[in-house]
């Protein structure tokens, strides 16, 4: 069952919009500001919005283990993201990003992509965030700076976020409507996909009760795909990494005359 499938076609689901609006308000309240942030009200609003969204997500199907895990990971990822956005201390923000990455990894596992889960965590949590923390420590040796206590136009940013997320949900809903009515791209997308999905399911290993196991062969298949159909992009990505390495070294070089001592 898809998220919007139960609704009446053509009508916008205002409950989603209200949930989003409350979330946006909460984030606005949580964002750092010179007047201090309303932490309690903001937290309540944001958590309320998240809870509502989870409720809406659970509503169509009823509870299973999978839905429970999905909602757990999704909610934790979003909470981490909210932390990342609103934390005054950059180091804490970086750590909350690690949380996001881990939760997204869990979602990827639910989506039968164990290799990506691992790669995502290793690359982000293991490499990128650590590098960020290094730079952070290099730059902000004397604690949080003034800039971390200010936001650039928080109201405008939250409004933009609300508008963008509302329009994205609207688009998804419309797409679902069209699919329900036998129109639009979803149907066209689904038609050839049905066969493929059947084929894939037949190749999946199954447990005794007929439920497919998490595809442990994922790494093998992914490797095959990467080195057959996606060979050229892989080589290009390698070249890109090389160029980026060289560029980073070149940019970060110390040049005389560019530095200002405070």
């Amino acid at each position: 069952m898809e998220l919007f499938a139960a609704g009446q076609p053509g009508l916008f689901r205002f409950e989603y919009f209200f949930a989003l609006a409350i979330g946006a308000l909460g984030i606005y309240l949580l964002l750092p500001s010179p007047r201090g942030k309303a932490s309690v009200a903001g937290s309540i609003a944001t958590l309320g919005s998240l809870g509502w969204l989870c409720f809406l997500g659970l509503a169509p199907g009823g509870f299973t283990i999978e839905t429970g895990l999905f909602h757990l990971f999704a909610a934790l990822a979003l909470v981490g993201a909210v932390f990342l956005v609103t934390q005054t201390n950059p180091a804490r923000a970086a750590l909350s990003f690690v949380m996001v990455v881990i939760c997204v990894g869990g979602l990827m596992l639910l989506l039968a992509a164990p290799f990506l889960m691992a790669a995502n965590m290793i690359v982000y949590a293991g490499a990128i965030v650590v590098t960020f923390l290094f730079v952070l420590m290099l730059a902000q040796q004397d604690g949080p700076s003034d800039a971390d206590n200010r936001s650039r136009e928080p109201g405008l940013a939250c409004f933009t976020g609300l508008a963008l997320s509302a329009s994205l949900l609207l688009l998804l809903q419309r797409d679902q409507d069209n699919a329900d009515r036998g129109l639009g791209q979803m149907k066209a997308l689904n038609a050839p996909v049905a066969e493929l999905r059947l084929k894939q399911e037949q190749t999946l290993r199954r447990e005794a009760n007929g439920r497919p196991t998490a595809p442990a062969d994922n790494t093998t298949f992914l490797g095959q795909t990467l080195y057959t159909t996606l060979l050229l992009p892989v080589e290009l990505a390698g070249a890109l990494l090389l160029v980026a390495t060289a560029g980073a070294i070149l940019i970060a070089q110390r040049r005389p005359g560019t530095e200002v001592t405070p």
Binding site: L156, A163, L171
Partner: peptide, 21 residues
Amino acid sequence: LVQFYALAMALGLTIFLVFLA
């Protein structure tokens, strides 16, 4: 300010999405 430019991009993207919808 870089962030104003990003804001304009995001709003433009929103308008585009609404148009798409």
